[in-house]
Design a protein around this nucleic acid. Structure first.
Length: 452
RNA sequence: GUCCCCAUCGUCUAGCCUGGUCCAGGACACCGCCCUUUCACGGCGGCGACGGGGGUUCAAAUCCCCCUGGGGACGCCA
């Protein structure tokens, strides 16, 4: 029988990063086995489920590139894929169990599963055999609430049966549920799917990747808005609890599809560390095709949208290509907006201090004077409004040759005249991306600041 | 508290199933050096772990037991 797996989030919140990892592993497992990946919306909790959250979950998965074969938005042989639309089946199944004396009503009019006496063994692809004494598992799981509506337990198991789910891949926090569900599977169909419980992802403090972590990011949307690429997130998530057979670390979606193997999933909970995610994000920013990164980066320089559009598409790509070496998150791009377009750069304190007195001050002023002259003298090429990298190089050479100032002062001075700061991205890239008129205006502004 | 799961560098991990090639390998972070007229990138090197105790064995990170530590589950939530 061919592999069928499902990811079954409940739309009571946006897609959490931990849920994304579960979805990813299901997706990779399905693809690795040429199987089917089902997205099912487990919205049995009507009070807390919303369409907005469902939309967020679908959008997040699309953004991550985790696509599904059957789901609420597509027709499939097992539709509907929203549990709220399958309520009758769930209720009927629960009542059938009651008729067969496999369930019973408690004093509160809640229908509960009847436990067998003794032990249940869960055979798990990751954890091995886990033995549970059913009597130690606490209260029997509720199947129908006192108001007659089905609960997660009956809905989930019945749907897994009806949708021919062969493998259930979910977090280890479901392990005790699985013992109960296994009883339900046997009662409902006599067949039990294969289970794989993934190790949990812990927050940096070591416990539960819960509401808040050090960076305040928990949902996929939040990570996206913070400037992470889906490629980096997928890469990072894949390495939490799993490792590549050749220990490769930077893994593309294609490589993951090629090499994923549930057998290599470990059983140890992993802490979510931003340092590694940041490293991978920077790596992907540097290694993905420029067009792709340029496109993704646009969202983070929204304030300069018009100015960027005015300069044409090639401008933006060349800027991103020149500057991406310095990026960790796409949101870092925001800082480059003013660097590219502002007419009056803020002057950094250390820059002001560095050139405020003595020889440094004198040297700086002579660089500034000559720089202003060059900006007036050196013509632009063709119909360009910026100097080329070569022209800028030539101009710095002139400064170095003509002035009785050491090279360091020339370059640092130039950097301050162009950016107002002593450090920043490659000056050649930057200077050749800034319009001459802006360069002139800035030089004037900086000189004025240093003269007063 | 009860039950379940887990335990290798600060972190993610390889190795463990099929004991010896492991005085434990990689990656992130950190620290040096190189590259560089800044910062990054890149290159090279360094620091750094088998939780403890018993077994089994000629031999244990690898197998068994106990302890300790960590995590999870115990809802008319999913």
């Amino acid at each position: 029988m061919s592999v069928r797996v499902r990811f079954a989030p409940s739309p009571t919140g946006p897609l959490h990063i931990g849920g994304a990892r579960t979805a990813l592993f299901n997706y990779l497992f399905a693809r690795a086995h040429s199987g089917v990946f089902v997205l099912r919306i487990d919205d049995t909790d009507k009070e807390r489920s919303t369409k907005a959250f469902e939309d967020d979950i679908l959008d997040s998965m699309r953004w991550l590139g985790i696509d599904w074969d059957e789901g609420p938005d597509s027709s499939g042989d097992f539709a509907p894929y929203r549990q709220s639309e399958r309520e009758e089946r769930h209720r009927d199944a629960a009542l059938r169990l009651l008729a067969e004396e496999k369930a019973f009503y408690d004093d509160e009019k809640v229908l509960r599963l009847r436990y067998p006496i003794g032990e249940v063994v869960v055979r798990d692809m990751v954890c091995g055999d886990c033995v549970f004494n059913m009597q130690s598992l606490g209260q029997e799981p509720a199947l129908l609430r006192s108001n007659g509506t089905p609960t997660y337990h009956i809905a989930s198991v019945l749907d897994d049966v009806e949708m021919n789910i062969t493998h259930i891949i979910r977090g280890q926090d479901h392990l005790t549920n699985t013992a109960k569900h296994q009883v339900l599977f046997e009662a409902l169909s006599g067949k039990v799917p294969t289970f794989a419980h993934l190790p949990l992802i812990l927050g940096e403090d070591g416990s539960k990747m819960s509401k808040r972590n050090t960076e305040g990011l928990t949902t996929v949307t939040e990570f996206r808005d913070a400037g992470y690429l889906s490629e980096a997130l997928i890469n990072f998530l894949s390495l939490l609890g799993w490792s590549h057979p050749e220990e490769l670390e930077t893994l593309s979606r294609e490589e993951l599809l090629r090499s994923f193997d549930l057998g290599r999933v470990n059983q140890t909970a992993a802490k979510f560390e931003f340092q590694k995610l940041d490293f991978l994000n920077g790596w992907w920013i540097r290694n993905l095709p420029v067009e792709h990164v340029a496109r993704e980066a646009r969202a983070f320089v929204d304030d300069y949208s018009d100015l960027i559009d005015e300069r044409g598409p090639e401008f933006w790509e060349s800027v991103v290509d020149g500057l991406r070496g310095k990026l960790t998150r796409l949101s870092d791009m925001a800082a480059f907006g003013p660097l590219l377009f502002s007419l009056t750069p803020d002057i950094a304190d250390d820059a002001r201090e560095h050139f405020s007195e003595g020889d440094a001050h004198a040297g700086f002023l002579s660089v500034a004077k000559r720089w202003c002259e060059l900006l007036a003298e050196v013509p632009l090429e063709g119909d360009r409004d910026c100097y080329t990298v070569e022209q800028f190089k030539k101009m710095t050479k002139i400064l170095k040759k003509e002035l009785d100032v050491d090279a360091k002062t020339v370059f640092q001075g130039l950097r301050v005249l162009v950016t107002g700061s002593l450090s920043g991205p490659d000056l050649q890239v930057l200077a050749s991306s800034i319009q001459r008129s802006v360069l002139q205006e800035r030089a004037r502004s900086v000189v004025a600041a240093f003269s007063s």
